[in-house]
Design a protein around this nucleic acid. Sequence first.
RNA 1: UGGGGUGUAGCUCAAUGGCAGAGCGCCGCACUGUUAAUGCGGUGGUUGUAGGUUCGACUCCUACCGCCCCAGCCA
Length: 431
Amino acid sequence: MTSARISDLASHAGQSVTVRGWVTHLRSSGKVAFVVLRDGTGVLQTVLVKNAVAPEVWERFSHLTQETCIAVTGEVRADARAPGGYEMGLNDLTVIGESPLDYPIQPKEHGIDFLLDNRHFWLRTPRQVAIMRIRSEIEQAIQDFFYERGFLRVDTPILTAAIGERSGLFSTEYFEEGNAYLAQTGQLYGEAAAAAFGKIYTFGPTFRAEKSKTRRHLTEFWMIEPEVAFNDSEDNMKLQEDFVSFLVQRVLERRPAELKEVERDVTKLENIKAPFPRINYTDAVATLQAKGSAVQWGDDLGAEDEALLVADYDRPIFIVNYPKEAKAFYMKENPDDPRTVLCNDCLAPEGYGEIIGGSQREDDLGKILHRLREEKLPEAAYDWYLALRKYGTFPHAGFGLGLERTVAWIVGSQHIRECIAFPRMMHRLRP
RNA sequence: UGGGGUGUAGCUCAAUGGCAGAGCGCCGCACUGUUAAUGCGGUGGUUGUAGGUUCGACUCCUACCGCCCCAGCCA
């Protein structure tokens, strides 16, 4: 007997095949029954007629429960009444793995805490399957975008000495070396690699021990960080807008069924094309003050301010050249206004907020040393990073795109935690 | 770490100081085309924990715990 995956059943119409999967719905009308199963590639409705199957098959059917793993055999036929357009007239049914009656996920609304406690099962539901497929599509698109443009992927270490951003670090014992810290960014290694390979990107998990409890934060998240030798801040933004547009267009082209499953308004995504508006920080402050915000020049922009700015646009926007006090030590001083640095945030539309932080990097050894000392960072920990400015320093720029935030925006999710298979948050380490 | 909210059946929620309930799930019966099937019947509780006020507490008070939302930090 031929076995098939549900997604391939159209090519088996009229044939008898075996499909294996998990029971999602059971419906019975006495002598006609429906068993709906899921195999990860799709959903199949099978039809069981009591008088047309062996008594033992009907008996096995009558004991089925939600999520029982089964094998069904029968003829595939087109039927408009079936989800997916094809159904199976069931001849045989065998149980592969039983499922007790207390399976926690029901076909109804559940609270988020309950769902996260049952994430290992929640993942089986249609919306979650669609989100994970879109995430995987985006990950593939990321690889394709950079590969097609001649970038080298460089995998940077996850265990590091204390180096990176200012916010919280996770630490662990590391042999005779004292503590190691989980990487908050691959950027500094990316800069070293850019001098070796010209155009690189990193793509991996990053860790922040921030005590954040918002819809936009995870303690473990995946970040894409390109770094390009000889790019300036404007080149950097051009790369960002091409990149983000590429990801959105790819999902629109290849995952329309999944976008429909998550009920995304795709007309909002169809607008996402380069160029994105660039708003100077100083102009943004003036605009915000005119709109009634209390923000003062020198303040970082709060979530409310960002929402006010992005509300006027139908695509992501760049906020460029923030005051240096608001940003990291490695960002290059703006020659036209030394109070500021050559950087940008990219804010997604529809209130999804910051998805990218990027900058041209400070390439002057004296200036970066000065900033490092202003920030009271441990100079010794940065010795190799500073040496990049000593031996053949070079202008370069890069950015970091948060994968889960990007997925949340593209699928229209209210929460980042359904955009990664097993989210890690301040109070959640399992499953 | 601040501000706000919340915690009652397996799940989602009612019960505003006076007998702890509903829907869903689950179990049983009926039903030959269901789409979260339907109809009838049944099952289900240490009201987060500890203390206090009261004749009487799911309800009011105190502390603790969990969770949610917002802010900050950032991606």
